[in-house]
Simulated assay, not measured.
Amino acid sequence: MKFYLGVDVGGSKTHALVADMDSGRLSLGVGPGGNPESAGFSGMLESMRIAINDAKAQLPQEESICLGAGFGVAGFDWESDRAPISEGIEKLELGCPFRLENDSLLPLWTASTVGEGIAASAGTGNNVRGRWHDGRSGRITGNSLRNGEFGGASELVFLAIQQLSYAWTLRWLPGSASSRLEDIFLALTGAADLADLLEGIIRDRYQLSPSVAPLILQAAQDGDEMALKVVQRNADELAFSVLAVARQMEIDEQPFDLVLSGSLLQHSPFYQNVFLQSVQALLPNARGILLDVPPVVGALMMALANDRESSKKVSEQLLEVRKMMAKNGWKIGE
């Protein structure tokens, strides 16, 4: 069996997608999270092995030859990470050339055969990265609040708590402080009132996780003033990150694909629309594209980038991925 391999290593799970070039079949394997920042390099390697073996087990059991591989790895944040992560990949003994990128770039390869444009991710956190066919690239730090980068669920919750703090201290004008967010957070934590809520958050008696984000979005969609302000600020900041990356790549005045991924953008049409409106105000030539296949598909396309004939063959196969997803119960973002 001759095959190409794509691997998406995340913090909570790892996906491997194998394209059997003899039978034309695609198989998806799943493993545990392998971000080296949390799992270590040994954990990263083990998660890759599990996912790859799971994918290959679904195909004919015969001698196999890997023709090329693509890896998107969460935690590959700086160039200094390339050597140790590459050394881990080499221990897989695939015997083929491979490409390595940060996992946030994988969505680009699902929208373009050369993987160019900008990818904006808003899930638990946020990230924006881009690349162009001539080698130009751009990025943000991907370090969230610490570096003033907003857009994901954790940042949305942070901004909501901040606005409630402003309301309690009367930083908001009298008469504008009332918000459904206060009721939502009091109900979730069991706090007696807003003062108790803020004290409890500051002293770690109460925790509000990123899972609260959909409730904030719903309040905003229903017209709550404070929630709308929070959602708009989060979306605006993510749009400014896209602008920054476009400027780095010198494509801010020309058309480019902007691929949207992450649970907040993929599962909330409301937030998606707010974000795209913010982007259009800054970058009218950006073309928003919602990721509609698992990111690991991008890793496979990355592996195929140097083989035009095979890339064309698998690109045609990937037109059927949506049907396969439905048949096998695959879900976006899993």
Rank of each mutant, 00 (worst) to 15 (best):
S165D: 12
L173R: 07
F240V: 02
N328Y: 10
R171I: 04
Q280D: 15
K91F: 14
Q58Y: 05
S209Q: 14
T113P: 14
L173P: 06
M1K: 02
N35K: 06
D77L: 11
G72W: 08
L105K: 02
G329F: 00
L194T: 13
S209M: 14
S278P: 12
L156V: 11
A160N: 12
Y271M: 05
Y4C: 00
A299N: 07
V293H: 06
R205H: 13
G70L: 04
R287S: 15
R99Q: 05
S137G: 10
K91N: 14
L260C: 09
E149I: 10
E155Y: 07
G10H: 03
P269Q: 01
E62M: 15
I202L: 13
S104Q: 07
V279G: 00
W78P: 06
S137K: 15
V296E: 02
P295M: 12
F275T: 13
V274F: 08
G333W: 08
L198M: 15
A153C: 09
G152C: 13
A153W: 06
W78H: 11
E62K: 13
G33W: 12
L319W: 00
G298P: 05
P255F: 01
N53P: 07
N234E: 11
L94H: 05
N126I: 12
L170M: 11
G70N: 01
N147G: 01
L304H: 04
V73F: 01
D257P: 14
S38A: 09
A153R: 08
G151H: 04
E320H: 01
A191M: 14
S27C: 02
T124K: 10
E93S: 13
I289C: 07
S104G: 11
F270V: 09
V231R: 11
D183Y: 14
L260D: 07
S144K: 10
G333C: 12
G40S: 09
G70D: 00
I140L: 15
C96Y: 02
S263W: 10
F98V: 00
G68K: 00
P210K: 10
Q232I: 10
Q58T: 03
A167E: 07
L105N: 07
G135Y: 15
M1H: 03
F256N: 05
D54P: 09
G125P: 15
A119N: 03
L258H: 01
V114L: 09
N285M: 08
G148M: 12
L181Y: 10
A74K: 03
A51S: 03
S112R: 15
E93N: 14
L217D: 02
A281H: 04
E320R: 01
E182T: 10
S209N: 14
R233M: 10
T14C: 04
P84I: 03
L28Q: 03
T110A: 01
Q162R: 15
Q317F: 00
L282T: 00
E116F: 13
G70Y: 05
Q162S: 14
A219L: 15
C96W: 02
A286D: 01
V7T: 06
G333L: 10
D54W: 04
M48F: 09
E316F: 04
A326G: 06
V30P: 04
A303C: 02
L276V: 09
